[in-house]
Design a protein around this nucleic acid. Sequence first.
DNA 1: CACTTGACCTGTCCGC
DNA 2: TGCGGACAGGTCAAGT
Length: 293
Amino acid sequence: MPELPEVETVRRGLEERLIGRVLLSEVHDTPKGFPNTPDNIAQFMLGASVTAVKRRAKVLLVELSSAYTLVVHLKMTGQLVFVEAAAKDRFGAGHPNDSLVGVLPDRSTRVTITFTDESALFFNDQRKFGWMKLVPTALVPELPFMQKVGPEPLEDAFTGTIFWERLQRRKGTTIKAAILDQTVLAGVGNIYADEGLWGAYIHPATRVKDVTRVQTDLLWSQLRDVMNLAIEKGGSTNKNYVNVEGKRGSYMDFARVFRREGLPCPRHPEVLIEKIKVAGRGTHICPVCQPLV
DNA sequence: CACTTGACCTGTCCGC
DNA sequence: TGCGGACAGGTCAAGT
């Protein structure tokens, strides 16, 4: 999916555009219904306005004046694309030229939400892993996911000591599996895991119990640096990811190892990046920077 | 309990 | 050109 930087980029785009807009129509499920969509969607969305757009880990929270919240997870291929004057333009004309998105809705569109000013928000999801549900805002903190998800890594409260302590919950597994675990810390996915581990000179398959405190301190700062840079660049478009305007993010132009197998390591021009498998995921390393000890 | 693997879906790419 | 298999940003349930 979209990882933390991509979801944050979408959040900012939605916040800029949706606040105060009033939902006109009920949700149209196309082409298949959303399994988690409750029956009261029309009742609590129709006529409600958007009051806030928040993010927790990789989940978006679109708060409505009806005291309900649209909770959205984009998983691997989800997109939220906003189109001005969508009704007039028959959904989709008016996209910027560098858009990766064509005329909407298309075959990947799962949900269309229209607003009273004829703008519309499209939830597209090629692989259908993503979900969207309407939850009373007061109950959002009670969701099982919210109860168990780890701290936000970019907040000041997330110190190196907290990172170290939370990693100790997963001593037996690999450091890559541990930082991908959303209950250890929130928001890290496959791209930024590989980028951060390269930055910290740690082989992804190193057991957590073998990673020193000095190494986790460096990993802590590298993960934060890499995700802050990615937010600045509008996220990473590996394949499907786009922001609310349908535009790609540019972090992949700055990636050091992710999807760069066969290309030189930025620190060692004579050494080529290798692709291996760790924690069941494609994993990119410099064999010289990141020796397995 | 801790950890790993398969499943969920569709699309694309690569080798035969 | 066709076909099978592996793989893809994430997370669960089920298995060991």
